[in-house]
Every structure is written in C-alpha cells, then in structure tokens.
Amino acid sequence: MANTAYVRGNTVRKEYEPSRRPRHVHVQEPQRIKKRRHHMSLGTLFYMTLAVVLVVVALAWYITLQAQVKNASKNIATLESQLNTLKQENDEAYNRANGNIDLDEVKRIAIQEYGMTYATEGQIITYSDGGGNDYVRQVAPIPEVDG
C-alpha cells in the first residue's frame, strides 16, 4: 500500500501530452459561398429600404399626431379657463342685478301705475298634460272664462 499513490475524487484524471492536443484546422469556404455571404441581392436591398422608409413615415405620422393632441389639450385648457372666467363674471353680474331689484317697489308700480290686480278664484285655470312633461304645448286656443 505504501507504493501506490492515492487519487482523490471519483474519477481519474487523464493528462494529455502536448503532441496529442487537437490542432485547429482552417478550412477555406468555396468562393461562391463567400461571395453570396458578403453581397445581398437587389430584391433584398429594395425590401429593406422599403421597410426603413415605411418605419420612418409611420414615426413621422405618429409624432405629428402626438403634437396635434398636445396642441388640442393646450387649446382645451385655455378654453376651459376662459369658460370659468366668463361663468364667474356672469354670476357676479347676475348677483349685482338681483341685488338692485326692490320687489316691493316693482309690486307698487304694477298695482298703482299700471292698474294690475291679483287673479281671482274664477280666473285661474289649471291644465294637466297627463304625461308628466315639464312644459305644456298649446295645440288649441285657451277657452275664455266668463265671470
């Protein structure tokens, strides 16, 4: 046992001599394969050029659409701002107009100067449209009430 060498691991490693190592052999390709590999046909060149042109046109169209959407959004924001300003000015003008009206004075002028009176019980006629609509469409003259 003293004469045998101990090998660790589960396999014995083989050592190669330098002369037994495989050499890389370069095999020349035939000329027609080399030629075909370096040049593409006219049809392939046309197809690739057409594909690149279509991609560029599509990208330009997309960028144009994106710019139009951005401009439309800015325009909408501007119009909304103008609408809010006009609504606010309209509300202020309405409140000023309503604040200056004295309803008691309007009633006094209507009764004293124009001779208006309140409606009596026999002068009020109530119509029912039967459909629950918010308005009544007049299809015939309103009958006069004697009284």
Results as ranks from 00 to 15, higher is better:
133 N>C: 02
121 E>L: 10
34 K>I: 10
138 Q>S: 05
52 V>D: 12
52 V>A: 15
22 P>I: 09
84 N>W: 00
140 A>M: 13
76 I>S: 09
36 R>F: 14
102 D>H: 04
79 L>H: 07
98 N>A: 13
77 A>E: 15
50 L>Y: 08
67 A>N: 08
24 H>I: 12
28 Q>C: 01
109 I>R: 05
25 V>N: 01
68 Q>C: 02
21 R>M: 14
76 I>V: 14
100 N>A: 15
116 M>N: 06
143 P>L: 00
125 I>H: 04
22 P>R: 10
27 V>L: 03
92 E>L: 13
120 T>G: 13
32 R>Y: 04
88 Q>M: 10
92 E>P: 00
24 H>Q: 08
17 E>N: 10
60 A>H: 06
114 Y>N: 15
15 E>N: 09
29 E>M: 10
77 A>T: 15
25 V>R: 00
59 L>G: 07
73 S>E: 15
110 A>E: 01
68 Q>G: 12
101 I>F: 08
20 R>Y: 04
123 Q>K: 10
112 Q>H: 10
26 H>Q: 10
107 K>I: 02
118 Y>K: 13
102 D>I: 03
3 N>A: 03
36 R>G: 13
6 Y>L: 10
139 V>T: 11
116 M>K: 10
140 A>G: 12
21 R>H: 09
103 L>C: 05
101 I>D: 02
96 R>N: 13
136 V>L: 12
74 K>T: 07
57 V>Y: 09
104 D>F: 02
59 L>N: 05
9 G>H: 14
84 N>R: 01
47 Y>G: 04
14 K>M: 05
83 L>I: 10
133 N>T: 12
131 G>E: 13
19 S>C: 03
108 R>K: 14
118 Y>Q: 09
92 E>R: 09
48 M>F: 07
132 G>A: 11
4 T>N: 07
122 G>H: 08
13 R>A: 08
141 P>W: 00
81 S>P: 03
105 E>W: 09
21 R>C: 05
8 R>V: 06
31 Q>M: 03
60 A>G: 09
127 Y>F: 14
132 G>S: 03
35 K>D: 14
65 L>E: 14
62 Y>R: 04
71 N>K: 12
39 H>F: 06
84 N>I: 11
46 F>D: 07
9 G>C: 11
90 N>F: 04
120 T>W: 02
4 T>C: 03
8 R>W: 08
12 V>T: 07
135 Y>T: 14
95 N>E: 14
89 E>V: 02
109 I>Y: 07
58 A>T: 03
73 S>N: 13
80 E>Q: 15
138 Q>P: 00
104 D>T: 13
142 I>E: 06
58 A>V: 00
85 T>Y: 11
42 L>Q: 12
84 N>H: 06
33 I>C: 03
122 G>I: 02
129 D>N: 15
31 Q>K: 05
147 G>V: 08
13 R>F: 02
87 K>T: 09
121 E>W: 00
101 I>G: 02
